[in-house]
Amino acid sequence: MAAKTLKINGTMISAREGESILEAARDSGVSIPTLCHLDGLSDVGACRLCIVDVGGRLRPACTTAVAEGMDIQTNTEQLRAYRRQIVELLFAERGHVCAVCVASGHCELQNLAVSLGMDHVRYDYLAPTCTVDISHQRFGIDHNRCVLCTRCVRACDEVEGVHTWDISGRGTSARIISDLNQPWGDAESCTSCGKCLLACPTGALFQRGSTVAEMEHASGRIAVIVESRRVRG
């Protein structure tokens, strides 16, 4: 495969053809914040946190392929400001109360807020009504914590091959649903494999019985499953 030469933050690097900017940056030690991206799953370019400046235009690093001669900036003042605004918008959208969250201390959203220097949220808290569904024997879903990244939807569809999860509605009324918007425990298609829990970046999907700060998502395991499946052919 042909190599592409490009510049990231002023440094020349070479990348494989067809690789995303995100992969190329990580290979060369540059980290770019992400939320809807998860290694092993397809990319949707939805959270917009990985936007980078490509020759003056903003592009999502996860879905933009490298090209010869690209001049990429990953951490300009403008990008940092936009990323912080995006994370603030998420915190304002639903009830992300870290103090009483099962994933506190192990949460990608919480960590993003820290790394982007978010000391407060400048927007109105929308405070929507969100349910907590603990009808499943082992797992629960707290919609207050959901950021609609669709990692669970993709893990279920692409890795488990079931597609129990999808999204209903649109805009801020969108909600993750199981089967026909039934309680998770009644969703016949669910195999209770728990891959959605692995994929979830926040405290939205959790093991029942876990209390504050107890829920750790081993999201890296999704990539391991996918990679070993690929190697085995």
Binding site: H163, W165, S168, S178, L180, N181
Partner: peptide
């Protein structure tokens, strides 16, 4: 089609 897909489309 998975039921969730149908519900997702119907509510979109």
């Amino acid at each position: 089609l998975p039921p969730s897909r149908v519900y997702g489309v119907a509510t979109f």
